[in-house]
Nucleic acid binder design. Structure first.
Lengths: 149, 149
DNA sequence: CCTAGTTGGTTTGGAATGCGAACTCACTAC
DNA sequence: GTAGTGAGTTCGCATTCCAAACCAACTAGG
């Protein structure tokens, strides 16, 4: 049994929206305050047509908002929506992993606390707030779980 | 000036290793305890040859470890390395975003605390541990920063 | 007016990658 | 002997990627 095909899961759903190449780099730039097409392109290295497509798909996913900043010719800036801002933990998590495990992690860009210190992600219990450091995590499969036990 | 090309950054470096399609879904499965080729394939939907490539590249990135579990024919299981386990906050972050923002978030799989409650990611100040809820975050560009201010 | 530059694209055509289906190889079960 | 499993590899086509060229609508300089 359990031929239900690929596992339906919020991770997969999120990756459908932001998992394509360039998408998270585009979001990194917007997080850093870079809002215009040419600058995003320069800082990510994405080809023009691909960048256009990614910006449109992030916009239609409700992650970016496209705001005009001049009329003739029409020009736009890209801003994070509330949903977009909620992707911050993912970017911080990727950054933190890179700093910890890449051979020669480049130091920029830094996301920092207003007190000047670095930031990091912690996985915590939503109820008691207790941090989970490697242990304490259990994976639970409520329905249609793992194909082979 | 500042024609330094794409921004060097640990986020980009990490995405070079795990940012391709299927990679994070493969890791999700291994996190959930699914270790064999056929099961990972069934639960992710990745094509065979692509899955082979992704498993090899995750192995050579030091994120997965390939352990033989029988000799003839040679068969393998995929396990997380320490570095692989450190990607947990990224997966939890993606899952959490999906649960919060997808139209119809599927409920599986759940990562849970041993106390039974759900888990979530929090972005905190590395020094004082204070959580950053949307505010309190500053982006700092130490060298070769943003192309246009 | 003419030319060059800027911004944000679209178009074009070849290269790379992705994909499902078929096939292989080494077994195991019946 | 036949069927099935597990982990691939090979094949041929389809999609996507990408760099370069082009375009549209302006602005600045002369």
């Amino acid at each position: 049994m359990n031929d239900a095909g690929p596992r339906a899961c919020p991770i997969a759903g999120t990756l459908d929206l932001v998992g394509e190449r360039w998408s998270l780099l585009v979001l990194r730039e917007v997080f850093l305050g870079v809002r215009r097409f040419a600058d995003i392109r320069a800082n990510t290295g994405a080809p023009r047509d691909v960048l256009t497509k990614r910006l449109r798909s992030l916009e239609s996913a409700g992650i970016l908002e496209r705001r005009p900043y001049q009329d003739r010719p029409p020009r736009f800036e890209y801003h994070l929506t509330h949903a977009g801002r909620d992707l911050e933990p993912v970017l911080i998590g990727l950054r933190e992993w890179g700093l910890r495990h890449l051979a020669d992690p480049p130091p920029t860009p830094r996301f920092r606390h207003t007190c000047g210190a670095d930031v990091e992600t912690r996985v915590v219990c939503a109820a008691c707030g207790e941090p989970l450091e490697g242990s304490g995590l259990v994976t639970v499969h409520e329905e249609a779980g793992i194909a082979t036990g």
